[in-house]
Design a protein around this nucleic acid. Structure first.
Lengths: 396, 396
DNA sequence: CCTACTTTTTCCACTCTCAGGACAAAGAGG
DNA sequence: CCTCTTTGTCCTGAGAGTGGAAAAAGTAGG
């Protein structure tokens, strides 16, 4: 199928496309209520969008008491690809223009195998999704990588956990392979975008999105826009010192948050506890699987294992202390906790909340919700689709 | 004299006014080079500004090889009032429309005396400046207070060190008294605005401005705009925990940065050291004055007093550790250190730099200048004038 | 002093955008 | 069948804005 190559010609058209993306099909009249344009002007712009086939007419809208109106919707053949590369697995999803997930695959993988091997796998996964008939091609793709990105160019810079990716032209390469526009960002920023678009952060302008997975990162949203910092490393909170003279960290310092609590640190602590026979529950799981991960700790905690609960609580306390500092500094309207360890659930959340509410001033915490992300593993891919759609649905 | 009540009628005019504010007198042609408007359109807008007397013609511009052009400048009779209320003193200054300081007074004062007493003093100071003939009235005033502010309304909210100010309608009251528009903000934000307008941060979009005075606060600038947070308390870093189980703080917690290093903490530490005869230099100064302040510590350090140097270094280390965390999180392009304790100078700066460069990742610190503010005590008042001028020089 | 060339300003005709009124089309409700 | 409401279309006029031409006011060199 011929792909859509058209782009909105002006800010009005971009505005309309975003309204249709976020609000689904709308009649011309409903659109008019939202955009502050004259009916004539609106009709002209909608007609132009129809001409470029970015939007299509689609049946009759519900009556509002008078003449019924035809619905306008984004072209149902538009397809976005959302890719979320984690440290140990990849998520690939296909969405329509309204960013609804039509198909989603998750596969284990190791980023350290380098960009070439990873891309091969990602492209295979995309092909697989395409083969199911969900898409005949992609109109745009968003991709998240677990490390800092020079955003305008779409190139990872000095990513600690992704050796071999430094300077690799991710955007360029993927755009070449897929034959469509591509945007690249940090995976944490995409999670924030995802939760903003379809999750718990829909109505908040300024919020933090803390992702605790293999490492720890934080998406920062200021005035509804992701803030990336001067060199693209904003939100890199994994190496903030959480424990003075604490454990040595891969970065060369001691006491980094990430060294004390993260998917990797938790797995190591759990294994240690199991080997020292401190926890029968964990020991049994180690016996059974050969290794332990955050999932095992979560299961053990759910079974009431005291050691597992302690590990989670202590980690939550550490994380909460760091977040308390960030809350004082940033004064967000919401804090979202997400990532692989959300399986630890309420125990973790309670520990974090306790520390934040205790460690920050009342004015900052007074009306501050601290909640788990609502989208789980789909936050990243939805955010990726949102990223590219924001790019495509903006004036050329 | 009749005050200017006109406001720019559209975004073009606002743009021109800001160019004239920041770049001084310019010819029409020079303005044309900067604004991307046709000559005709530009002429129309300039004429309208001349009509409203917001700008005036002012002599001939330097020749660029052909016909000489008349300069356009902001009305030289425009006057802004900048007020910077600190915990223990007030600064009041008068500026012209280009935000150059024409007169500046500083007086000791205690905010805890409450808004009524403080305003009386501020108005007296403003009257004194006016009496010198610098101004016949004010076209706008900016005012900074040492605590969080609900910015849109210009009302302090729950300010810890300003009992009696909570909810006091500062903006409304001052506007009434002065008969001109007023904007209110946190003093730290104004310092950041000042350094951005006329100081070290002129070319940086994202930076932090750490003010160490009686307390510690931090101005946050994102994309050239001050970020104030959800409730106006962003940048309140004085109560971030710097020392686990450290000293008790007025806020009820232990180990807050402010409890370990700030003008107040430093004075107390110095007094203690003097009383315990650890430092002859400080003891002599205590003997002479009855009390010690950050200035005494600075003088003792300059004289080579080891105890004073240690106090500064330790404080700098604490502060540096906190800033290191903020740098990891925020990834600024510049960190400015300002406030009363800048007299501690290079010793303090060196300690802070050491901690930040050690404690943050290379990607964030690689090209990160950490410098002292360049404007000293005028940063606040310049920022205040900038705040109100930004407000007035925007489309109505 | 005069001439050739620049730069700057002013004037003007023309295009384009856009708002809002008038009107037609289509349905709801009685 | 009639009236009212909502929706879509057409049209005209106001205003914004562009860019060319010419006038104004200078510089530089002979």
């Amino acid at each position: 199928m011929r792909r859509m190559t058209a782009r909105p010609a002006n800010a009005h058209q971009a505005r309309l496309l975003r309204l249709l993306r976020d609000g689904g099909p709308n009649s011309r009249a409903q659109l008019g209520d939202q955009v502050d344009l004259s009916r004539s002007k609106l009709a002209v712009e909608v007609d132009r969008l129809l001409e470029t086939e970015l939007v299509v007419a689609d049946g009759l809208a519900a009556s509002r008491g008078g003449r019924r109106s035809h619905n306008i919707r984004l072209n149902p053949h538009l397809r976005f690809l959302g890719v979320d590369i984690g440290a140990t697995s990849v998520d690939v999803a296909v969405t329509n223009a309204e960013l609804e997930i039509l198909g989603h695959i998750n596969q284990p993988m190791d980023v350290r195998e380098g960009p070439v091997a990873v891309f091969e796998q990602v492209l295979a996964m995309a092909a697989k999704l395409r083969a199911t008939g969900l898409a005949e091609g992609f109109d745009g793709a968003g991709i998240g990588v677990p490390g800092p990105v020079r955003f305008p160019e779409g190139v990872p810079v000095a990513p600690p956990i992704m050796p071999g990716w430094d300077g690799f032209p991710v955007r360029e390469a993927l755009s070449q392979e897929l034959g469509c526009p591509v945007m690249v960002d940090n995976d944490v920023n995409l999670m924030a975008l995802g939760e903003q678009h379809a999750g718990v952060a829909r109505t908040v302008a300024d919020f933090l999105c803390v992702k605790i997975g293999t490492g720890i990162g934080c998406g920062i949203v200021v005035g509804g826009e992701v803030y990336r910092g001067t060199t693209g490393s904003a939100g890199d909170i994994g190496h903030i010192q959480a424990v003075p003279d604490g454990r040595p960290c891969a970065c060369g310092n001691r006491g980094c948050l990430e060294a004390h609590f993260s998917g990797a640190a938790l797995a190591r602590d759990a294994t240690e506890a199991a080997e020292q026979q401190l926890s029968p529950e964990l020991a049994a799981r180690l016996e059974a699987n050969g290794t332990l991960s955050a999932v095992d700790v979560a299961a053990a905690a759910a079974a009431g294992d005291a050691t597992a609960l302690d590990l989670i609580r202590e980690g939550g306390n550490r994380t909460g202390q760091v977040i308390a500092g960030l809350v004082s500094f940033f004064n967000p309207g919401l804090v979202v906790i997400g990532g692989g360890v959300t399986g630890l659930g309420h125990t973790l959340l309670a520990a974090i909340r306790t520390q934040v509410y205790r460690g920050s001033l009342p004015l900052a915490t007074g009306n501050l919700p601290i909640v788990l992300g609502e989208l789980g593993p789909t936050a990243g891919v939805i955010g990726a689709a949102r990223l590219i759609s924001d790019h495509l649905f903006s004036p050329a």
